[in-house]
Design a protein around this nucleic acid. Structure first.
Length: 432
RNA sequence: GCGACUAUAGUUCAACGGUUAGAACAUCGGUUUGUGGUACCGAGAGCCUGGGUUCGAUUCCCAGUAGUCGCCCCA
């Protein structure tokens, strides 16, 4: 391979995205919207390195599949290292490490980028960013309900309407009780039934019922009654009294008192069998053409304990930037791009460069974002540049301005001009 | 990991087994030496890679690669 003959590709690495300034601006909008909401609830930000020891992910999931969907490598010191595919193990590790000194309960959030080695497809890339919001150290269902209402408020902050998304809620506690104690399923049968429920929407309902019967035999009717129930208060009496069911009732109750009404009980919601121990929830786009899961989370009370620390109960969710981007795009909720640069200074002739520099320094000292055009092109080209870059104001500098120190602030969009003296420039610009 | 479809200019898309592969938008410049959304003129810029069939392949065939969608898997 001779590098001299090889043209380098300008494509970003497979499954990753470049963020050009307009994309970056949108990304910043998405992150700052998330941040504003979670901070309003008292969550504080943390972050960590992209790299973790591979052993941590093995311990958590215990399956080989993890290895096939992660970026793992051996570092120069022989350590087995993985680029984080998710943030939850990292935050659990951080909590476990300072378990004794951290004042519980904790409300923490982070917006890390995560990597998975998988085939890119709609809504799923190899690198994405994900808001992670977690409460540690509270067993109360109030924490579960708070997490769900944070998720709800974020959706609302993006401009989503109640009828365009819903929150599906289930309880792993209830499912475990049903499977293990009520239906007394073997571990293998439980696993099969969960897989089956996951595929429910991808198969004919007759076929689905047949397969349920093959696992549950005479109890399958009872199970189907459970599975088709969408209102927690309408659960069959036989298991409505169980703790998991009561928990769900309480959560729906708390949520409705908070004014969150677009949530439904969904007994088929499973969400990654591994570490969830209680409430699980998922936010769905209700668009019938494109009904899909946007994000979700749940309660995981045993996760911190894998680090050989005491149990610390946790509940939280992760919200990916790709799916939320698709969502706000679908519903036309994207904000219009605005440059962070407020003023573009056009120079009529190179002899006025020093005046432009003095002016820009003066304005920057007064917190105005200013860019200067040193291209020495004709004026119309300079103005076009400012316009294409969506910079809202321009000032032209030439002979008149250098003599009078009086400037015309031109509003590019409105096509109006304000005549302002040097001394007033900063003040006027800050106000518009 | 498996399957389907696709690959022509920066982008969206045409055409063609044979002389010079076109358009729109975008970019840059000009019409206009102190003023930008319209109009007109001009410029730069392209057949994914390798192999096969053929006198000749951007076009047909195969493989690779990449993209899109789905499966598997799963936040």
């Amino acid at each position: 391979m001779t590098p001299t003959n090889q043209k380098l590709s300008t494509e970003p690495y497979r499954g990753t995205r470049d963020f050009y300034p307009e994309d970056m601006s949108l990304q910043n909008y998405i992150f700052s919207t998330m941040k504003t909401v979670v901070e309003r609830y008292g969550y504080i930000e943390y972050t960590a390195s992209l790299l973790e020891e591979t052993a941590m992910y093995r311990a958590k999931s215990g399956s080989e599949i993890v290895n096939q969907q992660t970026y793992s490598f051996i570092d120069r010191g022989g350590r087995d290292v993985t680029i984080r595919p998710e943030m939850t193990p990292t935050v659990a590790r951080m909590i476990a490490r300072k378990r004794k000194e951290l004042p519980l309960p904790l409300r923490w959030f982070s917006i890390p980028n995560l990597f998975r080695y998988e085939r890119p497809q709609r809504g799923r890339l190899r690198e994405h960013w994900q808001l992670n919001v977690d409460i540690f150290g509270i067993n109360s269902l109030e924490a579960d309900a708070e997490i769900i209402s944070v998720a709800y408020d974020i959706m609302k902050s993006f401009g989503a309407r109640d009828e365009n998304f819903n929150i599906r809620i289930n309880s792993r506690k209830l499912i475990n009780y049903l499977f293990n104690e009520y239906f007394t399923l073997s571990e293998e049968n439980s696993y099969q039934l969960i897989k089956l429920i996951d595929h429910k929407n991808k198969m004919e309902s007759k076929e689905f019922i047949l397969q349920v019967e093959s696992i549950l035999c005479e109890k399958s009717h009872e199970f189907m009654d459970f599975l088709t129930c969408t209102d927690i208060t309408q659960l069959p009496d036989s298991f409505a009294q169980y703790e998991g069911a009561q928990d769900l009732k309480n959560i729906f109750d708390i949520l409705s008192k908070k004014g969150i009404l677009n949530c439904v009980f969904d007994p088929s919601l499973m969400r990654g069998f591994d570490y969830y121990t209680g409430t699980v929830f998922e936010v769905f786009d209700t668009n019938p053409v494109n009904s899909r899961s946007l994000f979700g989370g749940g309660r995981y009370d045993d996760l911190v304990a894998i680090f050989d620390a005491e149990k610390v109960p946790g509940v939280g969710f992760g919200m990916g930037d790709v799916t939320i981007h698709n969502y706000i795009d679908t519903y036309n909720l994207l904000p219009q791009y605005k440059s962070t640069t407020k003023l573009y200074i056009c120079i009529l002739d190179n002899e006025y460069i020093s005046l432009a520099n003095e002016l820009s320094s003066h304005l920057r000292a007064n917190k105005v974002n200013v860019a200067v055009d040193y291209s020495n092109r004709k004026l119309s080209s300079q103005i076009k540049t400012a316009e294409k870059q969506k910079i809202p104001f321009i000032v032209c500098i030439g002979q008149d301005e250098s003599q009078t120190k009086i400037f015309k602030i031109k509003d590019i969009e409105k096509r109006t001009e304000k005549i302002v003296h040097w001394n007033e420039l900063a003040k006027v610009l800050m106000e518009c």
